[in-house]
Write a protein that binds this DNA or RNA. Structure first.
Lengths: 205, 205
DNA sequence: ATAATAAACAACAGGTTGTTCGTTATTATA
DNA sequence: TATAATAACGAACAACCTGTTGTTTATTAT
């Protein structure tokens, strides 16, 4: 058999397409991009694009899925420790190291992440990223820690609050030049989440 | 003069266009919509559309600006009280009534809001909404209350956190059928923001 | 009643989209 | 290294959407 994806021409082509995509999202926004834009920038024939992807959405989805898969892997790796820590009196250590790992991954893929999470990015990715956080929070035996009867607000809103807040901070970090280290970002997020926004603002003791 | 926008034909046409737009965003998402879709649904000639708007983005922008203007009006109206309350020991009363007013407004315009803030909506509107919250928080003499030296985290991340969190909760509310009252939603948001997510989850006393 | 003008209708060039040819160039492998 | 497989190319296609324009019809304000 010879139908593998190891043909150098395929690898080269796909890489050119991805590079072109990231550049173009930054320049004109994902939705304004045409397949012709991509192939012109990637210096390949338009027909070649359609040999690999159905359309620009298919391309984007496949790209995003790889990113999500990797983030999921990192999360799964660190989650047992997080669950264990949440029950204790110092619920910041394990979540902190998970956050650091994720920020390091974002840092490595900052070209794509900045483009896709930016103001000209892809709304569906942000939606999927929130879904991912939902499932990560809800699906991982958190029920063992967080009991419905202890919640002061409906669970769905609490999760939406936390997930959106975290993504918002990530976006701000990416768009303002990633000047803080992954460690510092993890500290910022856990400070606000553990103590609350008002405390972090110095308005509450 | 007769160049006013009071001609019944104009009013009828613009209303048809807006109704069609909201319907179509819900069905196929803003970006997938063509001008032809809109005019077919609105039962008007395509040329008529171009007599009023440059393209679908122009239509969307004008629609959104009216919404933003109204939200800004509501915010400005309630802000003096919010500023005053933040300094006191009960910093929830005035912000609470502002939140109620805003949720009531969202409720009135739920067709548009649900469409535009939903997963098939308009990313640029969400970006503009965050900018609006930024300016509302930063620009309104908050400096008199929030002092940079008291912040435990950089101000830009704190604001991004709060703004994104609030929008996320609003989205969740709109997409899950708006079953809670504006009052209840205001309570939920202030509970999490004042006491912090971990406290609201029952994980902290 | 009538002048003003919004909306409809029709046609236009220019652009993008998928798709399909035959041809050329590159690759994997024996 | 020779060769069979196949990726990529170039060109062409109908179908569709976009703005725009000129003409005609219908509605509106006064």
């Amino acid at each position: 058999m010879r139908d593998n994806n190891s043909d150098l021409r395929v690898i080269r082509t796909k890489e050119s397409i991805r590079d072109a995509l990231v550049e173009l999202i930054d320049e004109k926004g994902f939705e304004a991009i045409t397949v012709k834009d991509i192939t012109t920038r990637a210096k390949i024939n338009r027909g070649t694009f359609y040999a690999h992807y159905q359309d620009k959405y298919d391309l984007m989805t496949k790209f995003e899925e790889e990113i999500m898969f990797e983030m999921s892997r990192i999360a799964k790796q660190n989650f047992p420790g997080v669950i264990a820590a949440l029950g204790t009196n110092s619920p910041t250590l394990a979540p902190f190291s998970l956050a650091v790992s994720l920020f390091e991954y974002l840092n490595e893929n900052n070209g794509f992440m900045k483009a896709v999470l930016g103001p000209k990015g892809d709304l569906s990715f942000q939606t999927r990223l929130k879904d991912f956080m939902w499932k990560t929070i809800y699906g991982n035996d958190v029920n063992a820690i967080i009991k419905e009867e202890n919640l002061l607000v409906p669970g769905q809103y609490l999760i939406s609050y936390i997930a959106s807040a975290h993504i918002g901070v990530i976006q701000q970090w990416l768009n303002s030049g990633m000047k803080e280290s992954p460690q510092e970002m993890a500290r910022i997020l856990s400070t606000i989440t553990v103590n609350g926004p008002l405390f972090a603002a110095g308005l509450k003791k």
